[in-house]
Design a protein around this nucleic acid. Structure first.
Length: 894
DNA sequence: GCGGACTGCTTACCT
DNA sequence: ACAGGTAAGCAGTCCGCG
């Protein structure tokens, strides 16, 4: 860290002094005045535009902002005119830098500036040098010889004694621009006299005020932060005019086992013809562009009459027509367009001799951008684990257009009845259009939920829409934290600075190879328990981060007087003087979700439209909050801080332990608990109230009733139970019968059992249900024994390949064995593919379902799986599998 | 040389 | 490219055993 003082620096011609700001509160206000120009929206003026994209224009050497005007439904671009330049920060003085020949002679160097930054580790302002460049590549391009490498490399050569450091050198230029100008992607802007000016729309003021009135007891700083978030989130969403695009390419076929299989053409080579492109606009435009080919029949399609069929005798003309579409629409949605459709189009266009400047696609390493619009690749968005699990509640498992389409909008891909290359024009058009339709509808269903979700995340994360829809939750979190650092003029630390200052973890994980100890799972009391209340802490980890002021700056802070503020079960302590940025921001997001958006999304008096809007926001917040603790324990996160993650988990354990003890003290039996929840047997409303009250007073944590089960059926295993709610719905958690890899044959019986259990209202009614359940199991067993399954597919296990088949070296699990058998038959398999296999008598005891026949099935293996699936529930019910299937004790012994 | 006890690997789940 | 904890099923290894 720079220990130098401003006095140590001698101004030179290239050196510019920036006005320095000192005290921490005035610092923030100062930054705000400087950066935020705001005008009030005038209803009579032409509508302002939404900030949707940000890039660096390499030719003009400035930031370029894409603005979408909801009225004209077009995107226009604005180039920076403020003279903002790329830079990095270093602890070296300009004098020292002047001595470094490779720095001074660097063609990209512009100037050195002296600036002050707040150092979060030392809790004081320090002087650093801002090395300003003409071009972001001068700071950290892929090529060697960029300044962020040169400075530390050459410092010893000029006799430098301390360590040369650079900061903020890995931030994308356009993000840096957003931070410095404190811009708000997803919000309204206007160009006035060629200046970019934020437009304040007063229509959301009332809501923002209402929200803020909920938080008047919060500290001023928190309230301010809540207001900022509320303003971003309450703002209305424009209509995004968009087009869904899908292309079909001639596909070489190969024959396997008499079946024709196709190989997806390589988009980098683009060696085959583009045969069909479907275009489906959100405004109703429906077009199919077809390439005329010899020997292709006209055929029929069931497409509606408003779809226009356009035939091209030249592929080049077809492609150029597609490019017109790409230039005409402000937003283009695809499913895997980054890696296939747009990439193929671009390379094919080159192969066809189309000039570069006529191709509106910028092909990147991983992304394909549009020169004049925004490309949203839904595959990347739906692939995002957080989106998959928390926003869509695991409704889809495989990220394919077919599966996602089926799961979210009930629209599967068209099934082909003949080989792809033999389709008539009509059939091809219909197939292609169906894909475009699924793609478009994935963005329009539930009142444009997906577009709204992307926009909400854009606003929270301060990122362009294209980035937010492709990157993971840790980037979203990183970016809004970096934004806040800049707002407060706090030096953004390097990952190694944090690690060096705060160290690693101290607790021992239960799982080998993990970095620290995690949550507690309370051992369940097996059996049937009537009248169970499940209480949980609302957003446990985000709440702890808020209440305990956790963040990289505050954990193990440098103030001696804070060391007494210890964290249970760890040697760590936390700061009592400064507020951690993470604590503040994550805490505000948590408060907004728990106290405003979640209740609003359920408020019956609101219109369906409003409720669904609140639901979008609360899901977006949920996705972010769910990851907000994990990121601190992830080495890939820029603000990685193991002690923060460890402390959070430790306080979590402490909290659930305390609350369990208190429950018992109140005379309530705790029959189970996991991480943030406790299952209470037959508690009175008063007992529940006093527990919640105690939590609020003693732990400063909100504890509420999450579920009321008529009864809960606990197995002896942790994370395995079944709960029947008061409304008769059944929650199945962790039980084998629910897992997706299990054969449908077994799953069906399991579901039948659940249906029986859902009927049970009182202990007395259990007897009848037990008989029914025994029947279900016996029937299933006998069907197996008599080999009377309907289709062999019903017996298939479905397991995902975590790696490519050749990558397994330590062991060969069964699904890999099956995968290798498929590979022998020339199937192409890679990581992420789902393998369906059955268990057979002969070595190696598994066979891919595609290659297996009924006679080979090892029935005894399946009986074994049937038993283990049901045993998890039967012991709690006091039933015995062997007895059910009619084995006497003697037979069992034999 | 063989079977049981054990560890390790892999996947799917829970919070 | 968010975390750790738990379960199941199988693969592979070690050890004892005349």
């Amino acid at each position: 860290m720079a220990k130098k003082h401003l006095d140590d620096f001698f101004p030179k011609s290239r050196i510019v002094h920036e006005k320095s700001t000192v005290s921490s509160t005035s610092r923030v206000q100062e930054e705000e005045r400087k950066n935020i120009e705001v005008i009030i929206r005038d209803p009579k003026n032409p509508s302002p535009s939404v900030f949707v994209s940000a890039t660096y224009d390499g030719e003009k050497r400035v930031a370029c902002i894409g603005l979408y005007n909801a009225e004209s439904e077009k995107i226009h671009f604005w180039h920076d005119n403020t003279g903002h330049k790329p830079y990095l920060l270093t602890n070296l003085s300009p004098i020292e830098l002047e001595k470094m020949s490779r720095v001074v002679s660097h063609p990209g160097l512009e100037q050195f500036e002296l600036v002050e930054k707040y150092d979060p580790f030392q809790d004081r302002t320090v002087a650093v040098t801002k090395v300003v460049t003409k071009d972001p590549l001068a700071i950290g391009g892929r090529s060697r010889g960029c300044l962020r490498d040169i400075i530390p490399e050459d410092y010893p050569k000029i006799g430098g004694k301390t360590e040369a450091k650079v900061w903020e050198a890995a931030i994308k230029y356009y993000q840096c621009y957003i931070y410095d100008r404190q811009l708000a992607p997803g919000m309204l802007y206007e160009i006035q006299n060629n200046n970019l000016i934020q437009v304040k729309d007063e229509s959301s003021d009332q809501m923002v005020n209402e929200i803020c009135s909920l938080f008047t007891t919060e500290p001023k700083e928190a309230l301010r932060n809540i207001e900022t978030w509320a303003r971003l989130l309450e703002y209305p969403v424009p209509n995004f005019r968009r087009v869904a695009l899908d292309i079909e390419v001639f596909t070489p076929t190969i024959e396997i086992e008499g079946k024709l299989t196709f190989r997806v053409p390589d988009p980098r080579e683009a060696a085959y013809q583009i045969t069909c492109v479907s275009v489906l606009g959100s405004n109703g435009e429906k077009r199919v562009l077809l390439l005329k080919r010899a020997g292709v029949r006209e055929g029929k399609s069931k497409l509606p009459p408003d779809v226009s069929f356009e035939y091209f005798d030249s592929e080049k003309k077809l492609v150029l027509e597609v490019f017109k579409v790409l230039q005409e629409y402000p937003f283009v949605v695809t499913f895997n367009g980054d890696d296939f459709d747009l990439r193929y189009l671009a390379h094919r266009a080159q192969n066809l001799g189309i000039k570069r400047n006529q191709i509106p696609i910028e092909v990147g390493r991983r992304v394909c951008r549009l020169r004049y619009g925004v490309h949203i690749d839904l595959y990347k968005f739906f692939f995002n684990k957080s989106i998959q699990i928390y926003a869509f509640g695991r409704r889809y498992i495989d990220v394919t257009l077919n599966e996602v389409g089926k799961a979210l909008i009930g629209l599967p891909k068209l099934e082909l009845t003949k080989p792809f290359n033999e389709l008539s024009y009509g059939e091809l058009a219909q197939y292609c259009m169906q894909d475009a339709e699924i793609t478009l509808k994935l963005t329009t269903f539930d009142d444009n939920l997906v577009m709204k979700l992307i926009l909400a995340l854009t606003r929270i994360s301060r990122m362009p829409m294209e980035d937010v829809s492709r990157q993971g939750v840790s980037r979203w979190i990183r970016n809004f934290l970096q934004f806040e650092h800049r707002r407060r003029n706090v030096l953004i630390p390097n990952t190694e600075d944090i690690l060096a200052a705060k160290g690693k973890t101290t607790t021992k994980a239960i799982i080998k190879g993990k970095k620290y100890k995690g949550a507690i799972v309370v051992k369940p009391i097996p059996g049937v328990h009537f009248n169970v209340a499940v209480m949980d802490f609302a957003s446990l980890y985000p709440s702890l981060i808020k209440v305990w002021n956790l963040g990289y700056q505050t954990i193990r802070c440098s103030h001696p007087e804070c060391k007494g503020n210890t964290i249970p079960d760890t040697p760590h302590w936390v700061c009592t003087k400064d507020r951690a940025l993470e604590s503040l921001l994550i805490g505000s997001l948590r408060d907004l979700r728990v106290r405003w958006y979640k209740p609003k999304s359920k408020e019956k008096t609101l219109s369906k439209k409003m409720r669904s809007w609140y639901n979008v926001i609360q899901s977006a917040l949920k996705v972010i909050l769910n990851a907000s603790y994990g990121v601190f324990g992830a080495a890939s996160f820029d603000l990685y801080c193991p002690p923060v993650a460890e402390a959070t988990a430790a306080i979590g354990r402490h909290s659930i332990t305390q609350i369990s003890n208190k429950a018992r003290e109140l005379g309530i039996q705790v029959i189970y608990g996991d991480t943030d929840s406790i299952f209470l047997k037959n508690p009175t409303p008063e007992q529940i109230d006093s527990l919640a009250q105690w939590s609020k007073e003693e732990l400063k944590m909100e504890l509420g009733v999450d579920k009321l089960y008529r009864y809960a059926l606990l197995s002896s295993r942790k994370k395995n139970y079944l709960g029947v709610s008061t409304d008769g719905s059944v929650d199945v958690k962790g039980l084998t019968g629910k897992k997706r890899h299990i054969p449908i044959f077994i799953k069906e019986s399991f579901n039948q059992m659940n249906a029986q259990l859902a009927q049970v209202k009182s202990p007395a009614e259990f007897e009848g249900a037990k008989k029914q359940i025994a029947n279900i199991i016996r029937t299933c067993y006998l069907k197996l024994k008599k080999r009377e399954w309907e289709r062999i597919d019903d017996l298939a296990f479905h397991v995902v390949l975590g790696e490519a088949p050749d990558h397994y070296v330590k062991t060969t699990p069964q699904h890999v064995k099956a995968a290798r058998l498929l590979q022998e038959k020339k199937y192409k398999l890679e990581a992420g593919d789902l393998i369906s296999f059955v268990k057979v008598v002969k070595e190696p005891h598994v066979k891919p379902v595609q290659l297996a026949s009924n006679s080979e099935i090892d029935v005894e293996k399946y009986v074994g799986h049937l038993q283990s699936t049901f045993d998890q529930v039967l012991d709690a019910l006091g039933l015995d599998f062997d007895e059910i299937i009619g084995l006497t004790k003697l037979e069992r012994f034999m």
